[in-house]
Lab assay of single mutants.
Amino acid sequence: MDSLVVLVLCLSCLLLLSLWRQSSGRGKLPPGPTPLPVIGNILQIGIKDISKSLTNLSKVYGPVFTLYFGLKPIVVLHGYEAVKEALIDLGEEFSGRGIFPLAERANRGFGIVFSNGKKWKEIRRFSLMTLRNFGMGKRSIEDRVQEEARCLVEELRKTKASPCDPTFILGCAPCNVICSIIFHKRFDYKDQQFLNLMEKLNENIKILSSPWIQICNNFSPIIDYFPGTHNKLLKNVAFMKSYILEKVKEHQESMDMNNPQDFIDCFLMKMEKEKHNQPSEFTIESLENTAVDLFGAGTETTSTTLRYALLLLLKHPEVTAKVQEEIERVIGRNRSPCMQDRSHMPYTDAVVHEVQRYIDLLPTSLPHAVTCDIKFRNYLIPKGTTILISLTSVLHDNKEFPNPEMFDPHHFLDEGGNFKKSKYFMPFSAGKRICVGEALAGMELFLFLTSILQNFNLKSLVDPKNLDTTPVVNGFASVPPFYQLCFIPV
């Protein structure tokens, strides 16, 4: 009986604490739906499609509103004006990374994606500088992407125009580009180590996009005490870190300090320079996690976009025909596509942009946080508050993009057929937390897609009208449904 009384008292205290925290903070924060004790607004949000729920709530509470995930307040920004004001106009104040408990377990605050403060700034600055020195957006990395595009075309030829699921092959190409940047090595598509790495990356994007992960991140005790797919994700990350550590040891034994070959060499050189400046942010643990982040951000996002792009091109054969006509006119058949071609191919450029806009790969991006107490639109948001960005509300804005739910390359073309930029184009987020590999991803999408369409016609196994382009999961990332196609050599 005594234990029951204690339990009831504990629960009562928890409920009172929950109510007090919510009521004391709500006077400062933007308005929002009334949260339930302990669980907050979790029942009012469709976990399978958070973005749709945010759109519905914005119609009631406006472009800036507050939700509670458990006891934790989260300020939501919906629509271009609110997102721009926060991420661009007040970029420094909104540059923090929001709480992501599962990532905390995986990387302990290291790396480039989930770190904060001085650690994040130094690692991000170093990573950007190193990638630029190796030619991100310049010639040397373009050579690597072109080489991988040629290998991709050869792998597709091996399908002999038979029906195939493109998931694996389209994942190999961007993964190999990242391998060449980090390890100075590309792998054969049949290499077992490479296959294991690909498998872990593919599993992780599916797990991260599941409703279960949303629950884990908002009720963090689940991570330590409950079984579930989150444990598989943590094991996959541990596998990748151990693999990278092996490569780091190989580099330490063979590195030429006067001739760095890749990202690992550059990081080890930085560690050597910083060894007298303790404590340094440049450690082996930081290198492991930064490399894992580059793999995660640079492989599955690009391969998922490529997979979605081919599905949309199957669905819209008239678009595919126009792209192939432009390829034939500008590039021809006797040389590989290059980035200089893009400025002469406005329709193809528009298609690449429209694919990214339409699929809305990361509907709410990753959570941000404010780095200080900030007054925002007459609300006071306390330091450390998590900020949720609705990228969907920007990419699918119906004023900027008429009929935003329709796939239409003319969203990025003017009346004369010239490519038209849009400030609403934010597939990689915006501001200080914009994806480090934005330029690389854009290069890969253009070169891989043009190389495929230069060499193959795409054949659907069903009537294009019957192809479903609805994402199968739409949590962290929008993942396309399973499909097969035939690559018919031109």
Results as ranks from 00 to 15, higher is better:
Thr371Glu: 13
Gln214Val: 11
Ser3Met: 13
Ser24Leu: 12
Arg26Ser: 11
Leu11Tyr: 13
Thr55Arg: 13
Glu122Gln: 13
Gly384Glu: 04
Gly296Pro: 00
Gly46Leu: 06
Asn236Ile: 03
Pro30Val: 02
Lys206Phe: 03
Lys72Ser: 08
Thr290Gly: 09
Tyr358Gly: 02
Glu199Cys: 08
Leu17Asn: 12
Lys420Ile: 10
Gly46Tyr: 09
Met257His: 14
Asn116Gly: 09
Tyr347Ala: 02
Asn259Met: 05
Ser303Phe: 01
Gln340Arg: 15
His230Asn: 10
Ser460Pro: 13
Ala86Asn: 05
Thr371Cys: 08
Phe263Thr: 04
Thr229Leu: 14
Phe448Gly: 00
Gly437Gln: 03
Ile387Pro: 00
Phe446Asn: 01
Glu93Gly: 12
Lys247Thr: 07
Lys84Val: 06
Lys138Met: 14
Phe446Met: 02
Glu285Lys: 08
Leu461Cys: 14
Pro363Arg: 04
Glu142Cys: 03
Phe226Ala: 07
Lys421Arg: 14
Asn202Val: 01
Ser220Pro: 12
Asn116Thr: 13
Leu388Asn: 03
Gly62Cys: 02
Asn378Glu: 12
Pro427Ala: 09
Gln214Leu: 11
Ile327Val: 09
Lys247Ser: 08
Met136Leu: 12
Ser422Ile: 06
Gln193Met: 13
Ile374Ser: 06
Ile331Lys: 02
Val83Tyr: 07
Tyr80Val: 12
Glu147Gly: 04
Lys273Asp: 12
Arg21Gly: 12
Leu447Asp: 02
Ser393Thr: 05
Leu413Ile: 08
Gln192Thr: 12
Glu253Thr: 08
Phe487Ser: 00
Ile74Glu: 03
Thr159Arg: 04
Leu17Ser: 12
Tyr379Arg: 05
Ile434Tyr: 14
Gly384Met: 03
Arg97Gln: 01
Phe476Val: 15
Thr392Ile: 04
Gly109Ser: 08
Lys421Ser: 12
Met257Cys: 14
Glu81Tyr: 06
Leu467Pro: 00
Pro382Asp: 04
Gly171Val: 04
Glu93Lys: 05
Asp265Tyr: 03
Val113Tyr: 02
Ile39Val: 14
Arg132Thr: 06
Ile488Leu: 11
Gly46His: 10
Gly417Trp: 05
Pro166Tyr: 00
Phe446Glu: 02
Asn455Ser: 13
Gln193Trp: 09
Val76Thr: 04
Lys59Val: 09
Gln261Gly: 11
Leu90Pro: 06
Met136Asn: 11
Asp349Tyr: 15
Asn259Cys: 10
Met136His: 10
Met129Gly: 13
Thr302Lys: 00
Leu312Arg: 01
Ile244Asn: 02
Leu458Tyr: 00
Asp224Ser: 15
Phe456His: 01
Ser3Pro: 12
Glu81Gly: 09
Asn116Glu: 11
Ile389Gln: 04
Cys216Arg: 15
Ser140Gly: 09
Lys28Arg: 14
Glu400Gly: 10
Leu440Ser: 01
Ile50Gly: 08
Gln356Leu: 11
Phe100Gly: 15
Lys399Pro: 07
Lys273Ala: 14
Pro35Asp: 01
Glu85Ser: 08
Ser451Glu: 04
Pro35Phe: 02
Thr304Trp: 07
Arg335Asn: 07
Ser53Arg: 13
Asp341Ser: 04
Ser393Val: 01
Glu288Ala: 15
Ser58Cys: 08
Pro489Ser: 03
Asn474Phe: 05
Ala321Gln: 12
Glu328Asp: 11
Val60Cys: 13
Thr299Arg: 07
Glu92Ala: 11
Met443Gly: 02
Pro402Val: 13
Thr386Phe: 07
Lys423Tyr: 07
Ser140Arg: 06
Gly109Ala: 07
Val64Pro: 02
Leu9Ile: 13
Asn116Leu: 02
Arg150Pro: 01
Lys399Asn: 13
Pro427Gly: 06
Ser140His: 08
Glu438Asp: 12
Leu268Arg: 03
Cys435Glu: 00
Lys270Pro: 04
Tyr483Ser: 01
Glu326Arg: 02
Leu17Lys: 12
Phe476Pro: 05
Leu77Cys: 07
Leu67Asn: 00
Pro402Tyr: 07
Pro101Asp: 11
Asp341Arg: 02
Phe219Cys: 09
Ser280Tyr: 07
Asp191Ala: 04
Pro317Phe: 04
Lys375Phe: 06
Ile434Gly: 14
Val472Ser: 08
Leu233Gly: 04
His411Ala: 02
Gln278Leu: 12
Leu90Lys: 15
Thr348Val: 10
Met426Ile: 12
Thr364Tyr: 15
Gln146Ala: 09
Tyr379Thr: 06
Lys52Glu: 11
Asn259Phe: 07
Asn378Ala: 03
Cys10Phe: 14
Gln252Arg: 14
Lys383Asn: 05
Lys200Ser: 07
Pro471Ile: 03
Asn289Gly: 07
Tyr61Phe: 07
Leu67Glu: 00
Asp262Thr: 05
Ala439Pro: 11
Val352Trp: 02
Ala103Phe: 15
Asp262Val: 01
Thr34Pro: 13
Tyr308Leu: 02
Leu362Tyr: 03
Phe487Cys: 01
Ser162Lys: 15
Gly46Glu: 08
Gly384Phe: 04
Cys266Asn: 12
Leu449Val: 07
Pro404Phe: 06
Ala477Met: 10
Lys423Val: 07
Cys372Tyr: 10
Ser365Tyr: 00
Asn289Leu: 11
Gly96Glu: 14
Ser209Tyr: 07
Leu366Phe: 03
Thr229Lys: 15
Glu438Ser: 15
Ser422Ala: 08
Lys119Gly: 14
Ile50Cys: 14
Phe482Thr: 15
Asn403Met: 09
Leu485Ile: 14
Glu93Leu: 06
Met129Ser: 13
Phe412Ile: 00
Asn378Thr: 07
Lys270His: 10
Glu325Val: 10
Phe126Trp: 12
His410Val: 09
Lys232Cys: 05
Leu54Met: 12
Asp463Leu: 06
Lys273Arg: 13
Asn41Glu: 04
Gly96Arg: 06
Glu203His: 05
Ile123Asn: 14
Ala477Lys: 13
Lys421Phe: 08
Met136Pro: 10
Val237Asn: 08
Glu318Thr: 11
Lys158Phe: 04
Gln454Asn: 03
Lys375Ala: 09
Phe425Met: 09
Leu87Gln: 07
Gly111Met: 01
Phe94Lys: 02
Asn196His: 11
Ser220Tyr: 13
Gly384Ser: 05
Ala103Ile: 15
Arg144Leu: 13
Asn258Gly: 11
Pro166Gln: 01
Asp89Val: 09
Asp463Ser: 09
Thr305Ile: 05
Lys121Ile: 07
Lys28Trp: 08
Cys151Ile: 05
Pro174Gln: 05
Glu285Ala: 07
Thr386Cys: 08
Asp360Thr: 13
Gly437Met: 05
Glu253Asp: 12
Glu253Gly: 12
Asp349Asn: 15
His411Ile: 01
Ile284Ser: 05
Glu155Phe: 14
Val237His: 09
Ser390Asn: 15
Thr34Gln: 11
Asp49Val: 03
Lys270Arg: 13
Asn277Phe: 08
Phe183Lys: 01
